[in-house]
């Protein structure tokens, strides 16, 4: 993690998961700084109690299955 790209808590206000679009590729898991996403074969689970709404996973999702709404 470089100095220029800090994890910002609450950078987004809401996180929506549109499960129909998800391809279970794991991009979101790779960029989650608090490890709150679990990916099994065809199941993605978000632990919203741990989520810090940093906005990394909507950036990384190749298919728009994770959407961050404005803070």
């Amino acid at each position: 993690m470089s100095k220029r790209e800090k994890v910002v808590k609450g950078a987004i206000g809401e996180l929506r998961f549109i499960s129909e679009l998800c391809d279970f590729c794991g991009c979101c898991v790779a960029v989650c700084p608090v490890d709150c996403i679990e990916l099994e074969e065809s199941r993605l689970t978000l632990d919203m109690n741990s989520c810090i709404y940093c906005g990394n996973c909507p950036k990384a999702c190749p298919v728009g299955a994770l959407v961050g709404d404005a803070a």
Partner: peptide, 17 residues
Amino acid sequence: VESRVGRWAGLRTFYAP
């Protein structure tokens, strides 16, 4: 790339966007 094993072991392995 979606590895969690490293994190569970306490290694810093997640990717900046």
